[in-house]
Simulated scan of single mutants.
Amino acid sequence: MEQRSVATSEVLIASTVSSRSIDVSDFIHTPCYCEENVYQLCKTLSSIGVADADGSDLFVVFISNDNKKVPLWHQKASKQADGFIIWDYHVVCIQKNVEGKSSRRVWDLDSDLPFPSSLSQYISEAIQPSLQIHPEFRRFFRVVHAPLFLRFFASDRRHMKDSLGEWIAHPPTYEPIFCEDGTVHNLDVYVKFGEGDVRDIGRDLVDKIFSEKYGVVLSESQLEEFFSLIP
């Protein structure tokens, strides 16, 4: 029943957005489950024709570090005027070559920036690399090609339960996401990374994005350049 309700929601979304501009409210969103929200976002963008049918122009981006302390701005969950918050990790979607142009845009369901935002705007206003921050808060980015993410990501939501087995935040109403090989939970692999995982940008690194199921890890300064090299 739950999986059918998700499919029904996607049909209703497709019907709704075909006649007007896309709004963040058109997408499935469960607070504190950003990885699942982006999973559903990629599927919906593909199903309604905003992205390639196979999601090949979409990239899932995990933002984290070794300390699980990620400062971002313009986040709706913040209680500050500038939207500042520190997440343990965050997940967004980046779309390349929008409408045949060499442009990239960011889909962040938790941001109060335009939906979507250009990659340059998102970096400037949500990440704010011009600000000097303490090394423990440096942001790193695991970039995963969406078709691979949709095939191999799995979460039984165990990370959202406390020591007594109670929910820290209410889960989505649909069934947990399991991947095609039967894996029920591998979220930890996606969110565990830091400075030691960053490699120099080159043709080999760009090529890996289309074959490595857990993607590649970039530093803050590499993010925009990396996407400029993706064909």
Rank of each mutant, 00 (worst) to 15 (best):
D162Y: 00
S9Q: 07
K213V: 08
Y190C: 10
K76I: 14
P116N: 10
F115H: 06
R151V: 13
Q75K: 08
Q75E: 04
I201T: 05
S21L: 10
P176T: 07
R203T: 11
S117L: 10
S118Q: 11
I48M: 01
R151Q: 15
P71L: 07
S120R: 13
S78Q: 05
K76L: 12
V70R: 04
L119M: 11
Q40G: 07
V17G: 00
R20F: 01
S221R: 07
S64A: 13
T16Y: 00
R142M: 11
V217S: 07
N65M: 03
S25W: 01
S120E: 15
V60W: 00
R203C: 03
H74G: 06
T16S: 13
V6S: 09
Y174C: 09
R142G: 08
F193L: 11
N67I: 06
V198G: 03
G100F: 13
E99S: 15
C93E: 04
M160C: 11
L12D: 00
A51G: 14
V11E: 08
H29W: 06
K76A: 13
S78P: 04
I127T: 04
F140D: 14
Q222K: 08
E166I: 01
L218M: 02
A146P: 10
L41C: 08
D108E: 10
K208R: 15
H74W: 02
C179K: 07
M1I: 12
V11N: 07
L131A: 11
F27K: 05
